[in-house]
């Protein structure tokens, strides 16, 4: 047991100093790209003309329906040969993670737009709002509150998904843990890796829950039912 703790206390700082940055950069880059891809594809599927919606749907199905690791290899190994575009390890990881999780995110965005009550959409028409005003000012703030739980889920999955980036030669947490196993044993190496992923996931998930509460607060969902009842009582009186 003492040996385990001694190994663990050696491995943990090593993983943090040598593997954390690749994991965090892959996650942050992947998360930003995931959001962009999800919004573009999700809005295209919901609001676009038929040809655009179909095109977005095809892209979503391709990236959702194929393996993340195979996509990673395509971007890292095949693209340089096909298009003479060499993104390097980190950008290949970011692009693959962003596209793959963005495809899932597109469904979250589409579903949330769908869940904004029909009356809200119709009122924007009745007030003659142009498309951009309607989306930016009325629909999006409501859809955003609905899509945050879905994005929370995806972001936590994305944290764990970064474990694949070692396959394109990034020295991330998983890669470093696999190296540390040789010197410090499997228990300490993978125990430390688990702990780091769990902490990152908890931070990400806490952040998203805070954003979710903020978005709901803006929609007035924090107002207790009692105040509405009180308003009705006052009006009647």
């Amino acid at each position: 047991m003492t040996e385990f703790f001694s190994d663990f206390s050696t491995v943990l700082p090593r993983l943090i100093s040598e593997g954390l940055s690749a994991t965090v950069y892959s996650f942050l880059g992947g998360a930003v790209l995931m959001l962009i891809v999800a919004v573009l594809l999700g809005v295209a599927m919901h609001q676009g003309p038929k040809w655009l919606a179909t095109l977005a749907r095809i892209v979503v199905e391709i990236f959702r329906g194929t393996s993340l690791i195979v996509q990673l290899f395509w971007i890292f190994y095949v693209f340089p040969q096909l298009f003479a575009v060499d993104l390097g390890s980190l950008w290949s990881a970011i692009v693959a993670l962003g596209l793959n999780y963005g495809a899932y995110g597109a469904e979250v965005v589409r579903g949330s737009l769908n869940a904004v009550p029909k009356g809200q959409w119709e009122t924007t028409t009745a007030l003659s709002m142009p498309w951009l005003t309607k989306m930016r000012r009325i629909i999006w703030p409501q859809a955003w509150a609905l899509m945050l739980p879905g994005f929370n889920n995806l972001a936590v999955m994305l944290v764990k998904g970064t474990a694949a980036v070692g396959l394109v030669l990034l020295n991330d947490i998983t890669f470093e843990a696999n190296q540390a196993r040789i010197t410090n044993g499997v228990w300490a190496a993978f125990g430390a890796a688990l702990l780091i992923y769990l902490v990152i996931a908890l931070i990400v998930s806490t952040l998203f829950r805070w954003m979710e509460r903020r978005a709901q607060h803006r929609l007035g969902l924090w107002v207790k039912a009692a105040s509405t009842t009180k308003a009705t009582a006052e009006a009647v009186a």
């Binding site: 009356g119 809200q120 009122t123 709002m129 142009p130 009325i138 703030p141 409501q142 007035g220």
Partner: peptide
């Protein structure tokens, strides 16, 4: 069903379209 915008105050609900439209 009234359809007031839940992400805005009463005043914002009324001034939104006059400003942007």
């Amino acid at each position: 069903q009234f359809n007031l915008f839940p992400n805005m105050s009463v005043m914002e609900n009324i001034i939104e379209a006059p400003i942007h439209v």
